[in-house]
């Protein structure tokens, strides 16, 4: 299932957050969305996921979601969004309980995704007992449980420290190698974008427009932190963004 974003604009009161965005999210690929602070990345992700209606333009699903898919467009949130009163298994179950599944089938899905995210030993722990990295793994397990067609990830690693981020990035790469999921991945971190993105879309400062698009052909599994060509991509992206980011920064100060 591809997603087609056609001429999407969005206004909040008098501020235009997004202006005429056109993009295609291709099945089985990770699209990274970067741009200066406040340019509308989170807004675009909410529009893609149907949590908000665009002021103009449309977001279209092309083709049917894969069979067995329970929730085609599934989020992973920056602050994890786990229910503190549910255990790890309970948080995963939340995404399944309103679907017509047998008790055994549900238990099987939960056990399966917890195993895939290396959380099997923590199924009865409460979120407060987990580190940030573990919490985000629970959120990823919950997203996998509904077999999404597209994962919408809003800075999923930003709340984590550098080392945890590296570990989870490796996990995400190996997960993608196995599952070939489709994702729109919002990040501030250029190194993250070049590690995980097949396509990188740079948005301009507010109102967000597509400023540049970059495709990286090297397979995800072959990318290592510090690779020369990845460093080059980072430098290139930073060149593209620098002026925008500086301007956006000043805008915030003026406001």
């Amino acid at each position: 299932m591809n997603l087609s974003i056609e001429g999407v604009s969005h206004v909040y009161g008098r501020t235009t957050a997004l202006d005429d965005i056109t993009l295609t999210v291709e099945s089985g690929r990770v699209l990274c969305l970067i741009g200066p602070s406040g340019c509308g990345k989170s807004t675009l992700l909410r529009l893609i996921g149907g949590l908000e209606r665009p002021s103009a333009g449309s977001v279209l699903q092309e083709g049917a979601p894969p069979p067995g898919c329970l929730n085609p467009l599934t989020y992973v949130f920056q602050d994890f969004a786990l229910l503190p009163w549910r255990t790890v298994a309970g948080n995963v179950a939340l995404a399944l309980e309103h679907h017509r599944l047998g008790r055994a089938e549900r238990a099987e899905i939960i056990a399966d995704v917890l195993a895939r995210t290396k959380l099997a030993d923590f199924r009865d722990a409460f979120p407060r007992q987990l580190s940030g990295g573990m919490k985000q793994r629970v959120a990823i397990a919950r997203a996998l449980a509904v077999r999404p067609a597209v994962m919408l990830m809003d800075e999923p690693l930003s709340a984590l420290d550098g080392q945890t981020r590296e570990l989870l990035m490796d996990d995400l790469v190996s997960l993608w190698e196995r599952e070939r999921f489709t994702a729109v991945y919002v990040t501030h971190n250029l190194a993250e974008a070049v590690r995980l993105g097949h396509t990188i879309v740079v948005l301009s400062r507010r109102p967000g427009r597509v400023h540049a698009t970059l495709t990286i052909d090297r397979p995800l599994a072959d990318r290592q932190p510090g690779d020369a060509d990845l460093e080059q991509h980072v430098a290139h992206l930073w060149d593209l963004m620098r002026a925008e980011a500086e301007a956006a920064d000043r805008e915030v100060l003026d406001a």
């Binding site: 599934t74 229910l83 309980e97 309103h98």
Partner: peptide, 19 residues
């Protein structure tokens, strides 16, 4: 954000309230 999370997983309104 917890409520948005529930909606993003397609929880019906009643489940968002109860859970």
């Amino acid at each position: 954000t917890l409520i948005r999370m529930g909606q993003s997983f397609g929880l019906p309104w009643r489940d968002v309230v109860l859970k």
